[in-house]
């Protein structure tokens, strides 16, 4: 029945919010929430609690964005069904998350994911993008000191790149434009424009944002989610609306019944789909993801391991926010 697949935000918001909000207590368990602890704000439980690793994964700090989104998001029933909405404890924890992130960076501002002295473009891009989004959500005035401290990270991000993978380039673009919008820093804005040009070169005529030489539906939806954030931040990237539309058109036919994707056809074998860009741009494929959620057969944030669940939950909550009738 085509009518059932028409874009109908009313019931969809709750459908996408539920897995994200259900993941929140798990993600809070990843975090050291004791303000007296030397690792207060660290969200890598394997490091601060189990002591199994010799350094924390900076991508775990993206939990700060999930907490900030949950704090700001009233829920489908306007505050009744999101127990975390407006709770005072959350902004304090978010500040702790970013204090730890700032303190655990390399001297040049880059961050680490796995090994000592790693300068991870991926982790620096995504954690920086989450940092600027948090500052936007909680108010840049309260983040002035942290934004000043973080400057070296954004300068590093603008001077380093990984052109093999478009999703990391898109996240760095999001971070750079976010920082420039919050601080008005002209150097970072110039670096952001250069990054935009570099990312543009990673698209092809079919709408693919290249991931190690080919299309990967999962990573393409991550790229499109970051680019949706960039479009909300700046009008500088005039090429984006058309590229995002083509990018969506490239993945929509690959998202089948119940939202499933044949991972064998993906350049990076990704099993899941990030829903936010599909929600923001009213893609017909969103209804197929919703069918999968109703049938409880679609991989959701709860299905993923500790390493991937947080970023996926962030995207589900962003999708729910996009689907709010007033948004």
């Amino acid at each position: 029945m085509p009518e059932a697949h028409a874009f109908a935000p009313a019931g969809l918001e709750a459908l996408f919010a539920a897995p994200a909000l259900a993941t929140l207590p798990r993600v809070l368990g990843f975090m050291d929430r004791d303000p007296g602890s030397p690792t207060f704000g660290c969200c890598d439980r394997a490091y601060w609690h189990y002591r199994l690793t010799d350094l924390p994964n900076s991508r775990a700090q993206e939990a700060g964005l999930l907490l900030a989104l949950a704090w700001a998001y009233p829920g489908p029933k306007s505050g009744e069904d999101n127990l975390f909405y407006g709770q005072d404890a959350l902004p304090q924890w978010v500040r702790g998350v970013w204090s730890h992130w700032l303190a655990s960076r390399n001297a040049d501002g880059s961050t680490r994911e796995i090994y000592p002295f790693e300068r991870s473009f991926c982790a620096t891009s995504f954690s920086s993008a989450a940092f600027v989004e948090c500052a936007r959500l909680l108010g840049a005035d309260g983040f002035e000191r942290e934004l000043r401290q973080a400057e070296s990270t954004f300068l590093w991000l603008g001077s380093n790149a990984n052109p093999d993978v478009a999703n990391q380039m898109a996240a760095s673009l999001h971070a750079l434009h976010g920082y420039a919008a919050l601080t008005g820093d002209g150097r970072i804005r110039r670096l952001a424009r250069e990054r935009g040009e570099a990312l543009r070169r990673l698209t092809d005529a079919s709408g693919t944002f290249v991931e190690y030489g080919g299309l990967d539906v999962g990573y393409q939806t991550i790229t499109l989610s970051s680019l949706t954030s960039v479009m909300a931040l700046t009008a500088d990237e005039a090429w984006l609306p058309e590229a995002v539309a083509k990018g969506l058109a490239a993945v929509e036919p690959r998202i089948g019944e119940l939202g499933h994707v044949d991972w064998r056809g993906n350049s990076r074998r990704t099993q899941y789909v990030y829903p936010r860009a599909l929600a923001a741009h009213q893609s017909p494929a969103l209804a197929r993801l919703a069918d999968g959620l109703r049938a409880r057969t679609l991989p959701t944030p709860c299905w993923l391991d500790d390493r991937y669940t947080t970023a996926f939950a962030v995207d589900y909550l962003l999708a729910a926010t996009e689907l709010r009738p007033c948004s």
Binding site: R26, L28, G29, R33, G79, Q87, D88, A89
Partner: peptide, 16 residues
């Protein structure tokens, strides 16, 4: 050290 709802203070009870 997992999350406990009591860490949110008193407000969550009425809502829940």
């Amino acid at each position: 050290k997992f999350f406990d709802m009591s860490e949110l203070g008193a407000g969550w009870r009425a809502r829940a």
